[in-house]
């Protein structure tokens, strides 16, 4: 925002309330109400206004209090933002960022707890990013704002409360990350685990446990869901010969399904075991805490799947 006066933030409670999750803390004070706009509760309205502003040269950052609410604005994200550049034969680009927390939260029931990665990633014209660490968040958000296309930026409510070590390089004002590049968070040789957002943390935990049992897991933080870094994934699978995909979203037509297809198309001959896909249960999110825990992937699910892929014995009825 300090580098480009065309960048502004709009959304519900981003200003005086300092963000529903305090993400925009201090921005109102620093940039004033002209650039940090509190809107009424009108997702369709303010998303459309954001898209319109982007058509004419501004760079809006539109915050959804959670991505669940983006469904009320999905027409603008897909029809107005994602398709305009194509429909206008490149005359109208839409440099806009839609950002906010995504994915399973805790105890808030079915309507407030859902992952939209595969929804938006299936749509041509959109770029979909999902940061895991502070480094990701800083580097990818800057890239998203500078990008000339509409970017859906999927943060995670439960990660807002987590801290990550950051290097001096990350803190440098010129730091930025490329869109479309995954990061190998941990190198390994026996099995590849792909994950994004909160699931990266789970995958790393699973890898720690697996290491104690002699399995060396390579953890890939996807960072970018669309474009998907197929080459990094395939290179890793060609090395480890085994793949476990992890996501919080629903299994059918999910991110894991797309990764699986990519690996089967490009590296089928390298696979030593069927691809294991870990996803959320195929149900709307239940409220009761015990059911909720069963409905989202846990570290032990990843461990079991990785062992299965490595032909180690695992108990039956392990999925879901």
């Amino acid at each position: 925002m300090s580098a480009d006066p065309k960048v502004f933030l709009m959304g519900e409670e981003v200003g005086e309330y300092q963000g529903a999750y305090k993400i925009s803390k201090g921005l109102l004070e620093k940039y004033g109400p002209e650039r940090v706009l509190d809107t009424p509760i009108t997702e369709a309205g303010f998303s459309g206004i954001g898209v319109g502003a982007a058509y004419y040269g501004l760079r809006p950052v539109v915050e959804f209090m959670t991505f669940n609410f983006s469904m009320q604005a999905i027409d603008h994200i897909i029809n107005s933002a994602a398709k305009s550049n194509y429909m206008s034969a490149g005359q109208i680009s839409v440099p806009i960022v839609f950002r906010g927390p995504n994915g399973a939260a805790a105890g808030v029931g079915a309507q407030h707890s859902q992952c939209y990665a595969s929804w938006y990633a299936s749509c041509p014209g959109l770029k979909v990013l999902s940061p895991y660490s502070s480094e990701d968040a800083r580097g990818l958000l800057k890239a998203a704002i500078r990008d000339p296309d509409p970017v859906v930026f999927l943060e995670n409510e439960l990660l807002y409360g987590e801290s990550f070590p950051v290097s001096a390089e990350v803190l440098d004002s010129s730091f930025c990350l490329p869109i479309g590049k995954a990061k190998i968070e941990r190198e390994g040789k026996d099995v590849t685990i792909t994950a994004f957002s909160k699931m990266v943390g789970y995958a790393l935990k699973a890898a720690d446990t697996l290491a104690k049992e002699g399995i060396s897991a390579e953890v890939i933080n996807l960072r970018s869901i669309r474009p998907l870094d197929r080459s990094t994934i395939n290179a890793s699978v060609r090395k480890t010969n085994r793949l476990v995909t992890v996501e919080e979203g629903f299994p059918q037509h999910g991110v894991g399904a797309e990764i699986c297809t990519s690996v089967i198309e490009e590296s089928f001959g390298y696979l030593d075991a069927p691809v294991e896909r870990i996803a959320g249960a195929d149900v709307p999110m239940p409220y009761a805490a015990n059911l909720e825990r069963m409905a989202v992937p846990q570290v032990e699910d990843i461990i079991r799947a990785a062992k299965r892929a490595c032909h180690r014995s695992v108990p039956v009825a392990a999925a879901a």
């Binding site: 029931g109 079915a110 407030h112 239940p286 409220y287 009761a288």
Partner: peptide
């Protein structure tokens, strides 16, 4: 009333 599947808001 919803067997724990709905919660406070539902």
């Amino acid at each position: 009333c919803c067997r724990g599947q709905g919660g406070s808001m539902h």
